[in-house]
Amino acid sequence: MIKRPLFLLDCDLSEDQVERQYPTLWRYLLSGIAQGISNGYLCRHRARWYAQDKRAPAPFLCTYMGRPSNGHTTNPFRFILNLSRAVAPNVYLNIYPNRMLAAALMEKPDLKRAIWESLQGITVDRLIDEGRVYGGGLYKLEPNELGNLPVTDVFDWHHEFLAMTPRQEALF
């Protein structure tokens, strides 16, 4: 038996609607406001601080923090091919294809695995050079730093796709 069950609140109603229609939920939200939860970084950047993100599952994920286990020989970052419909939490960098690449993936689903394999081929040094390192050898890669990696390193394998892409930098 679960001693203290936890629940995920996902409510798209406005505060006014919640207050009028669901007074118990409204009191719960007020306790979150009183505790400062609504002012937390993620909550204050949402349209409704108590609502969950509505986004599609990212086909590719990247860990954004890690330690190489053997100096520079082991990559502190991992690329993950998301074959599920699961939405990853914000502990991963979610990589979404742009419109042109999404269309290509719809037409040729096998490209997804090929792209993931190419992402796996980005060298440890390239990833580490683009990111930053903290005390104790913890490496971090921000979304814009991942976006700074030259796309041609990743997509050399698919000349047909590159030929139909006007700006290689805009693939992701």
Rank of each mutant, 00 (worst) to 15 (best):
G71F: 13
D129C: 07
A102F: 10
Q120M: 11
W157P: 01
I115H: 03
I37P: 02
N94V: 01
N70K: 13
V87Q: 12
R46L: 08
R20K: 15
G121R: 15
I128V: 12
A58R: 06
D16W: 03
K140E: 14
T74N: 06
L162N: 15
G131F: 03
N75W: 10
A86R: 14
P109A: 02
P166C: 05
P89F: 01
L111N: 03
P68M: 13
R27L: 07
W26L: 11
W26V: 08
V87W: 05
Q21V: 10
P150Q: 08
A163L: 11
L138G: 00
R27G: 14
L127F: 05
V91C: 10
L146Q: 08
R132C: 00
C62Q: 00
N148Q: 03
E130W: 02
V154A: 04
G36R: 09
F60T: 04
G136L: 03
L138D: 03
M164D: 14
Y134E: 12
E15S: 12
E130P: 01
Q168M: 09
I115F: 11
D53G: 01
R27Q: 13
D12K: 10
L42I: 10
R20P: 07
D153R: 04
L8E: 04
G36C: 09
Y139N: 08
A104K: 02
T63P: 05
D125V: 15
N144Y: 15
L9F: 00
A56W: 07
D129K: 03
P150A: 07
S38V: 01
P97N: 04
G36P: 15
Y41N: 03
P166T: 06
A170V: 07
V124C: 13
R167S: 14
Y134K: 04
A102W: 06
L8Q: 02
L93N: 07
D153L: 07
E130M: 14
L81T: 08
R48K: 08
F60Q: 08
Y50N: 00
Y139Q: 03
G136I: 06
L93T: 07
T73S: 15
K112Y: 06
H72A: 11
P59H: 04
T63W: 07
I2C: 09
P166S: 08
T24P: 03
A104D: 06
Q21N: 14
N70A: 11
E142Q: 12
N94G: 01
V91N: 12
T63G: 13
S84P: 00
R20V: 15
C11W: 00
K3P: 11
R78H: 11
